[in-house]
Design a protein around this nucleic acid. Structure first.
Lengths: 281, 281
DNA sequence: CGTCCTATTGACCTCACTCAAGAATAGTGG
DNA sequence: CCACTATTCTTGAGTGAGGTCAATAGGACG
């Protein structure tokens, strides 16, 4: 039902679609932030073996289908994606979010089939490379090989992060951890760590954190009321990074343990939606 | 505090310790079950470059320390381990459990440091191989290289499994999913899928599922009362695999949705501890 | 035999899920 | 450009599930 009106990505993009998709320098960054190749390096990146194909993925289009045979992998040039897995009962569990520089489709390396569905959260641009060329590419380019290994090994970090996220007790803390992770990711991409523009819906966040989407709303307003951040729709500004970190540090136990007066009597005057400074959009 | 009385693994095992650790055939299996190399293949596994060193890890000994520089990786020959990460507040989040055939220490590939602490849940035997020999080994042995890539790519599946685990609402369902995953893992190792011998404590399970350890106890007895399984300490026998799967299928919503009379009026006569068939230990 | 750890069970109470309704935003078509 | 519609987001009320605290029993180990 979510995919009913999902536009399918066209495998062979039209020429005019490709034109704006090929800038001079392409900073490619892997999963948790390490750079694949610096600007301008893409030219001789895979030159001897294969050329990465730029593709446009429209919003809500499905880049990779769960269970489909793995043909190629992608590196996000611009835009945002969500990786999800459908449970037997139709519940859509969001595994991860991917942004500029992240690699997609490497999950098919082990099983030959994609383990998750990858959907564009907004109009995006990706570089596609056939999986068949992967081995030749690794043999021809030692740097690519090393980066690939590192990127694959970085999944361990992802698992730790996910466990850290889901291990937190309380919707507020879990949401705080999510925002902190997002902030860190944005900082690694050279963007502001304080001003975040959420590409995903509350429902997607909820499906990622294992909460109800109403709880996300409540947690956001709760954190805003406490003065930790300001929320205006999908624009989030972190006002008190240290306080947020302190709140997120406690995995279990009552919230008052780490930040005694955290969510009760802290700056209750912050009327989120009435604050003129929140008018960002 | 958990590591206070933890015996440290001796890097150079004594000769008599090595003797029983080198059987004729060594079935090496990777993370989710794919075989690294068949029996007898270890001989020429890494022969041209390096020899894997068998090591014994006593119960509660720490094989890898979180944050320590990554020197070598291991393949579990026998025994069980838990991989955990310490939160800032001292909460020990269990990332995963590892058993025979699983690879350990590859998390240091990306960052150079281990991202988690690996502790032996019982006296175990592992094969150690220096990370420095990894590249040479890959170059010399194409099969090893491929298996390594697959093993690394399989982390994606692990992430999906973890999300599936934590995404379930309700301690009963979450515990059911955990037991099903464990059952699948044991089946892949050629052991019984119905009779499980839990290597980890309830507390470890709780830290892995994001629940209180009391909830694990309650969930186990609840599932036993419903007739899904029989529990005697760390021995668990799955009595109704299909029913358990059906219960675990529902991620959210009331438990009655999938199995209407699941945990209420189903075989309440099953007195777990009074059943003579449960005397396994 | 004493101690520590694990496991179980009970009582209490907070918290988050569910259901439900309203408001705001985005997307669509005239 | 504006109206209409669908989706998203927010807020409220009620309730059930699970966390916390606490006590007990059983086992392992020294």
């Amino acid at each position: 039902m979510l995919e009913s009106h999902a536009r399918i990505l066209l495998p062979a993009p039209s020429p005019e679609a490709l034109a704006p998709a090929a800038p001079a320098t392409i900073p490619i960054v892997s999963g948790p932030g390490e750079r694949w190749f610096g600007p301008g390096e893409l030219a001789h990146w895979s030159a001897p073996v294969a050329a990465p194909v730029p593709c446009r993925a429209a919003r809500q289009s499905v880049l990779l289908h769960e269970g489909a045979p793995a043909h190629s992998f992608y590196i996000v040039q611009a835009g945002d994606f969500k990786v999800s897995r459908m449970a037997e009962d139709g519940y859509e569990q969001v595994i991860a979010f991917a942004g500029a520089g992240d690699a997609l489709g490497l999950d098919g390396l082990a099983s030959g089939c994609h383990l998750g569905t990858v959907e564009a959260l907004q109009d995006s641009i990706v570089y596609a490379l056939p999986l068949a060329d992967l081995h030749a590419l690794r043999a021809a380019n030692a740097t690519f090989d090393r980066r690939l290994m590192e990127s694959l090994g970085a999944r361990w970090e992802c698992m730790g992060d996910m466990a850290w996220l889901m291990g937190a007790l309380g919707a507020d803390r879990r949401t705080a951890r999510f925002l902190l992770q997002l902030s860190r990711t944005m900082a690694r991409r050279g963007m502001s760590a304080r001003r975040l523009r959420l590409a995903m819906s509350r429902r997607d966040i909820a499906a990622h954190l294992g909460l109800a989407h109403e709880s996300i709303s409540r947690a956001m307003t709760s954190l805003a009321m406490a003065g930790y951040l300001r929320v205006y729709g999908r624009e989030v500004e972190i006002m008190d990074m240290d306080g947020l970190r302190q709140l997120a540090a406690n995995t279990r136990g009552h919230a008052c343990d780490g930040a005694p007066a955290a969510l009760r009597d802290r700056a209750p005057a912050h009327a989120v939606r009435d604050d003129p400074a929140c008018a960002m959009h």
